[in-house]
Simulated assay, not measured.
Amino acid sequence: MPGREKFQYDLNTLRDKLIEIGSLTEIALSKAIDALEKQNVDRALEIMEEDKAVDILDEEINDMAILLIAKQQPVATDLRRIIVAIKISNELERMADFAVNIAKSTIRIGDEPLIKPIIHIKEMTKISSKMLSLSLKAYNEEDVVLAKNVADMDDQVDNLYGQTIRELLELTYDKRESMQQITQLLLVCRYLERFADHATNISEGVFYLVKGRHYDLNS
């Protein structure tokens, strides 16, 4: 295979591995919230075990990217593609960690009945998951318009986050015996809010890839 064809093949492989991590991360988040709602500790433990696959892929992407830079000495857009791949891989690995953290909160809550339905938490999850899916689509298609739309969705998560935090804090006045659970649910909200922020960071990576400049889409 000629040098340029091999390089393009490797870039495509890098992209495919990123899409795979994204899929695993999206599944992990869905499973984590399902485990929380159903208080399924066994499912939560599975999520923690399955996270190893994400860590392995992240390492593979980083190693492959470094090797490509060393061997091919790419410039301009090709170099940005590799740099963005490393950045997005790191973002996805952190997002998968948030799913693991939610699973850990589920384990800590155990079988204590939930003090309230997790309606807003599920809505935050739905939006955050869609942000992840669309941010990866924007990356795959190098679509900055779609990337900007993803960043705009972050406001919805932030609003739900603020509302849910207030409601949980109000429960501390007459549900003091459930403080541990309230604390864990507060943490779950924080993990989801950060998950959405990282999806926005992926969108920023798309802007850098296409435009060659850094844009702060969180402001």
Rank of each mutant, 00 (worst) to 15 (best):
A28G: 11
I21G: 04
I107G: 01
P74D: 07
V54G: 03
E93V: 12
I21K: 10
R81T: 03
E60S: 06
M95I: 12
A96W: 08
Y9D: 11
E49S: 12
E59A: 07
L68G: 07
N40Q: 12
I33E: 05
A28Y: 04
A35G: 15
N40E: 10
I66E: 03
T25I: 03
I88R: 06
I33P: 11
T13G: 13
V75H: 05
I21T: 02
D78N: 10
E26S: 08
D63Q: 07
T106S: 02
D16P: 10
I83Q: 15
D51T: 15
R81N: 09
I83K: 13
I19Y: 00
R80W: 03
D78F: 02
L45I: 10
I47N: 08
D55Y: 12
R94N: 02
T106F: 00
E59K: 06
A85V: 13
K38Q: 03
I27W: 07
A103R: 01
A96I: 06
V41E: 05
T77C: 08
T106E: 00
S30R: 14
Y9G: 11
D34N: 15
V75K: 05
L92R: 14
K38Y: 00
I61H: 00
E93H: 12
I107C: 00
L11M: 10
I27C: 10
S23H: 02
L92W: 12
A53L: 10
E46R: 15
N62I: 05
A65R: 00
R81V: 00
